[in-house]
Write a protein that binds this DNA or RNA. Structure first.
Lengths: 106, 106
DNA sequence: GGCCTATTTGGCTATATTACCAAATAGGCA
DNA sequence: TGCCTATTTGGTAATATAGCCAAATAGGCC
């Protein structure tokens, strides 16, 4: 693979990699209907606040989230809501896998 | 996060995680116009054949690729071409990031 | 300033990932 | 059978990730 091509795919992969984690994908899904602050997300996720904060950093670094400070709270939101469309395709990948498994058994 | 919810997001994250690697994303892109055998992909990627084979396993395990044996060759193909639509959204994430960087400088 | 709350950062450990090499497996053919 | 090619599997080392705790930072308010 050419260095240039490799760099291009690495940049693109970074976005998918950021979403390729259960907690981070949950966060993306939570932000579907608007921004939320770290403490709201932390409460739903149930991990340490520092863990949630680090996940949010990964998503922001990947360009998926934007952050906005208000008082001593930080609100995160989706920067490109098109990422929500990924869910539909992922469902069909999972569904197809499940279907194949059933056919193997039958 | 409830155990059930967590398991659901883990299953979905697995698909994205599989694509969240430059080499594997390259493979997905290469298969956009039809199946290819391992050696064809290996030649374009340039890594060890065993490395390519393992990447293909990851993609197949995630449900993204199907494999078909023909003689002593194995052909891989996209099982749900909808994953190709991810690229467009990723472009817009990257474009938005780049735009923000420019605005910060200006 | 001092205190409280929200968030981030640093340090650490356990686990996972990626790459290569070497060896094993499987198919085709003499 | 033996050999060649294509692919997978096992082993190993370097690096990356995810979680927690403790400490640092930053804003609001007395």
């Amino acid at each position: 693979m050419e260095p240039n091509t490799k760099a291009n795919f690495e940049a693109r992969a970074k976005v998918l990699k950021a979403m390729g984690n259960a907690t981070r994908l949950f966060i993306v899904n939570e932000l579907a209907d608007g921004e939320k602050c770290v403490c709201e997300l932390q409460e739903k996720i149930g991990s340490d606040m520092s863990t949630v904060s680090k996940h949010l950093s990964v998503l922001r670094e990947a360009g998926i989230l934007a952050s906005r400070k208000n008082g001593n709270q930080v609100f995160y939101s989706l920067r490109c809501p098109c990422v929500l469309q990924f869910f539909k395709c992922i469902e069909s990948v999972l569904r197809t896998s499940a279907q194949d498994t059933i056919e193997l058994m039958g």
